[in-house]
Design a protein around this nucleic acid. Structure first.
Lengths: 215, 215
DNA sequence: GGCTTCGGTGATCAAACGATCAACAAGCGA
DNA sequence: TCGCTTGTTGATCGTTTGATCACCGAAGCC
């Protein structure tokens, strides 16, 4: 009902708005448009969202989706790749290991870049939907975070403070406390401060202070 | 196909197992059985899970669900109530304020009880599914956690350390770091230590140490 | 045993779903 | 302007979904 009325209004321009005439786009541009809409749509309602609602949101017909993606599964696969690809910057590890910079500053700077990369509506929610669905990329991503970011970070802490190396569970505790800001904001839709850098700085300071005290 | 074969095997006992004869249960017992199965099922696959699969899992027919719940929405509502009800223990606040006990011990003991209450497969996952779906109870629950648990905890910290009161964002940081253990275990299905008490204790110690240092 | 009660089932409906297809029309070269 | 290419559409298919119904049969009473 909503569908038909929208279509009728659109094609006949009932309410004065110019009818959105059929536009021919190049294959790449159209595919990109659909993919962007899919990212936003699945982030909002999850992968159980219907292709019809997605098409309406993208401003195309449902049939057109299947000209660019063979199936809904292939579309969601493309959404995953788009979301995950290039989300982990290799420079982060290098900067974490750059001992010319004070340790606290390195970790703070890393988490500022990291949160800037993942604290988006689309990333946080799709990552959580995928996690609940048991997606394998999800676990691989977090394994990478642990092995290639948190473990080296623990090494740097041990080297800088001269004490014993923090356990990985403590590293995950630091990580989780910071990531939880994004979970509250984008998953639970609770108010969070626009600037989370002070929170990160004090969290990192507490963590390093605790590591130093434990040495 | 799977359905019919299962039913045939079940009713005719093809593979030697005694056919599960139709059992008459009291209304309360049957409703309880369905509700328990619904909690487990929706925790696993989310609220987009079908009533047919749920019924199969509960060992009853799909039609029977509607003898005890008027609609799927009413069933999910019952699942919510079952999950949320009595999950927040009023004694926690009292014990947090019991100044005869050392502050660190109070907070550690609280988080041991709190995690014992919420670190279950059903609770963590249904809470997350509901959060993504934008459920109102979710936000009310977290509002309660902030107002009735974390805020008083901040007051106690200020009173005990004689310094300034930790900002609520810092309290959420402590909270998130601990809750993230459950998120990794039950949402992302990643390996976590069976006993998370040492992690909690060191996290609380770091937090209080940081608060004392900031005073 | 016979009878009643009501918990339980198989069959089925209308709507919504993913997916397909012939037909249409916008844009471009001629 | 014409005609071809191909991006786009409305209609439609088969299946699955939540929900309903008439009917069945186990359990309790006499």
């Amino acid at each position: 009902m909503i569908v038909s009325s929208t279509v009728i209004e659109g094609r006949l321009g009932l309410d004065g708005i110019a009818p959105p005439k059929r536009r021919r786009l190049g294959p790449e541009a159209r595919r990109e448009q659909i993919l962007c809409a899919a990212v936003a749509w699945f982030a909002e309602v999850g992968f159980a969202g219907t292709t019809r609602d997605l098409a309406r949101r993208a401003g195309v017909t449902q049939a057109l989706l299947y000209k660019y993606f063979a199936s809904k599964a292939e579309l969601t696969e493309a959404v995953f790749e788009r979301i995950y690809l290039g989300r982990l910057d290799p420079r982060w590890l290098k900067e974490l290991r750059d001992r010319r910079v004070p340790l606290a500053e390195r970790i703070c700077r890393f988490y500022q870049q990291y949160t800037a990369a993942i604290f988006t509506y689309e990333w946080m929610r799709i990552f959580m939907w995928a996690g609940l669905a048991g997606d394998a990329l999800n676990q691989r991503y977090l394994g990478h975070v642990g092995d290639k970011l948190l473990a080296p970070m623990a090494d740097e802490i041990a080297a800088a403070l001269g004490g014993h190396r923090p356990a990985m569970e403590d590293m995950w505790n630091l990580h989780g406390g910071i990531v939880y800001i994004g979970i509250r904001r984008f998953i639970y839709r609770l108010p969070t401060p626009d600037d989370h850098h002070p929170v990160i700085e004090s969290a990192v300071a507490r963590f390093l202070g605790g590591c130093a005290a434990a040495s």
